[in-house]
Structures are given as C-alpha cells and as structure tokens.
C-alpha cells in the first residue's frame, strides 16, 4: 500500500533549509495497521502529510496505492487524497456549522462521486459507532469521544484504501481513547483498509499490528 524510498522533506525557514522529515525506506502492506512513533519534532506528522499528499516531498519516492505522489501536481494530489485516503486528526477538526451526519458526508463531497448511497453509508457508520441518535447534533453538542467517533466515520465514508490518523485519541482519557481506537481498527479491519497512526502512546501503539519508530527510518542527513 505504501512504499517510501529516500524521502526528504525540507522547509525554508528564515532563508535556511530545515530538514523536517527523512525516511530511507518504509513499506506498509495492504490491510496492515501500523503505529508510527518517535520523539516530538522528528517529523511524524510531516511524514503523514507527505503520504496524504498534503505536502510534496523535497526528494525521494512516495508511492501510495500504486501512485507515485512526488511528481503529481497539487490538484492531482488533492483528488487522489479525496478518493483514496481518509484522515483522522488529533483535534478532530469537525466543522461546527454542520451536523454529525453532514460532517461525515463532507468526507465524500469532494470526491466528486458523492451520491445518495453515501448518506446511507454515513448513517450505518454512525450507527456502528453508537451515534445513530446523534446524527442531527452539531459538534458542540457532542462529547469529545463522540466527536472523535464522528471524525472516524468521516474518514471511512468514501471507503478509502488508506486511513491516516494523527494522534487520534487527542485529550481523551485512556479508557475512552482505547475504545474509540478499537472501533476504528475494527471497522478498518472488517473492510480491509490499511491504517497508519501517529501516536505517542505506547498503549495505543500496542493495539496496532506493527510499530515503526521514525528514528529507525532516518536517512543520514545530507
């Protein structure tokens, strides 16, 4: 599902080039559930953004679901992300004006393929995470745990091959966090989707099939 070779991502800060992320080689198979760990500032989120096509790598090969993202333009990467990748954020990032159901549907709107079937799937997903009766509630009317479950449904609505989660448990208590994570992994596992999760929490990482430490992947800086 994911093949990375000699990846570099530099940012220009104050006229200087700063290395944000460096990966010599990383392979993640289809349907795998992988935890990505590392110390703060080592580039975990940047790597996730590169895999998602949100940022373009400075160098190297990033192949996701058979597509090399590095040479793609921004619009093509946006389209690719919309169709093949589901994202779960640390701060959930639900849009306040929209209901839980509409927030879930937003995950499909930009694919250009949204239709009536997505509404049915959104309701099924909300039902599966125990929020069937909260479909018409706005994020501000939901608990932290419920908001994260909505965010998980949003990442799954368009049936992506790959789900990328960045500290998806946020500030939830460990028990609730673990419960929500299990929901995500269960659904992803049932549907055969690949999950890559950035986390600091060893307990969360233990729920994944494999853990990768970013420091171990680092290429020697040029």
């Amino acid at each position: 599902m994911i093949e990375i070779q000699n990846l570099r991502k530099d940012y220009q800060l104050g006229g200087r080039s700063v290395l944000a992320c460096s990966v010599r080689e990383l392979r993640i198979g289809s349907g795998e559930q992988v935890a990505l760990m590392g110390r703060s500032g080592c580039g975990k989120t940047t790597l996730l953004h590169v895999i998602a096509g949100i940022v373009r790598p400075t160098g190297g090969v990033v192949r996701v679901a058979g597509t090399d993202l590095a040479p793609l333009g921004e619009s093509a990467r946006d389209r690719f992300r919309g169709r093949h990748i589901g994202l779960v954020f640390q701060t959930f990032n639900l849009l306040q004006p929209f209901t839980a159901l509409e927030n879930v549907l937003l995950g499909a709107v930009f694919t250009g393929q949204a239709d009536g079937s997505h509404r049915q799937r959104a309701l099924e997903l909300l039902d599966r995470v125990g929020l069937a009766d909260r479909a018409d509630h706005r994020p501000s009317e939901l608990s932290i745990g419920q908001q994260q479950r909505v965010a998980i449904c949003r990442a799954l609505i368009h049936e992506p091959e790959l789900i990328l989660a960045d500290e998806p448990l946020g500030n939830q208590d460990p028990e609730t966090g673990a419960k929500v994570l299990r929901m995500l992994l269960d659904i992803a596992g049932d549907e055969g989707r690949t999950v890559v999760m950035v986390t600091h929490d060893p307990g969360s990482a233990a729920l994944m099939q494999r853990t990768v430490r970013l420091e171990d992947l680092r290429e020697v800086a040029a």
Binding site: E74, D78, G82, R83, L95, V109, F110
Partner: peptide, 16 residues
C-alpha cells in the same frame, strides 16, 4: 482558514 484547511485535507481542490 482552519475550516478551509480541513476541507482541503478532505480532498477539496483549490477550485472547489
């Protein structure tokens, strides 16, 4: 900006 960034992350193109 945050709302737009979220939509972009969900696959919204600049044109959209």
């Amino acid at each position: 900006r945050r709302e737009i960034a979220i939509m972009r992350a969900l696959g919204a193109r600049r044109g959209q």
